[in-house]
């Protein structure tokens, strides 16, 4: 029997995989819901390495990020404010805290349900610094040296915008953006800049890091 004869099983398998891919796309919303139920029923956590396992993933745009702690961390507030100043970690911790519980949603599809961030409301820090009348936006810089984000002043004054110090009531770890990160609860997680080191009040919105690469400046969920 020649090798050119026989049933074209190869072609059938290939086309079946293509069809399965299309079916997967169509059924994804249902399958994802079932997967979420399975995760909720998995107390051991064997599913941690599988897609959308409910945990945080680590994104950094730089090769390495310095580690900051109580001794060397500073958050500066400057730009169009009456009283530019900087805060130590202890000073931030001494201010009135707010706890915001919200789902974290990344543009890459992963999600963490009911994440509890605790920290100083961004509006309180802005009020303490005294925002000038021609200000319209806030720019955030990070001690990784590269990442930036921004919000309009109206967005920044929302009660669910935090300068977060804690996650699930524990101090923010370095991997999660600690000791201090932004938490913009009503927006996609790229807006919640990790390793926050600077807040600058500006007269217009300046696109952040990913926004220079096409992301929406208004990252509403």
């Amino acid at each position: 029997m020649s090798e050119d004869e026989g049933k074209p099983i190869g072609r059938r398998v290939l086309l079946s995989v293509l069809a399965a891919g299309a079916a997967g796309i169509a059924a994804a919303p249902v399958l994802q819901g079932g997967w979420q139920k399975l995760l909720d029923a998995d107390p051991v956590g064997v599913t941690q390495l599988l897609p959308n396992s409910g945990g945080f993933r680590y994104y950094s745009v730089t090769a390495s990020v310095p580690v900051k702690n109580e001794a060397n961390y500073r958050l500066t507030i400057d730009g169009l404010v009456d009283r530019p100043r900087s805060f130590t970690l202890a000073e931030l911790g001494a201010l009135p805290q707010r706890r915001v519980v919200h789902d974290v949603q990344c543009t890459d599809g992963w999600k963490v349900e009911n994440a509890a961030f605790t920290g100083v409301p961004l509006s309180a820090l802005l009020d303490a610094a005294g925002v000038q009348s021609r200000a319209a936006a806030v720019r955030f810089t990070c001690f990784d040296g590269v990442y930036t984000e921004s919000l309009t002043l109206d967005q920044a004054r929302r009660p669910d915008m935090l300068v977060a110090l804690k996650l699930q009531d524990q101090p923010l770890t370095h991997e999660r953006g600690g000791p201090v990160r932004l938490y913009a609860a009503p927006m996609y997680f790229y807006k919640s800049a990790k390793w926050l080191s600077g807040i600058t009040v500006t007269d217009q919105v300046r696109p952040g890091y990913w926004e220079e690469y096409g992301y929406d400046a208004d990252g509403w969920l």
């Binding site: 891919g21 994804a28 919303p29 994802q32 599988l50 897609p51 543009t107 890459d108 599809g109």
Partner: peptide, 14 residues
């Protein structure tokens, strides 16, 4: 939906 594409991309990658 983008989330559907991601779902298939992630699982098929595995």
């Amino acid at each position: 939906p983008r989330s559907s594409a991601i779902f298939v991309h992630d699982w098929l990658a595995l």
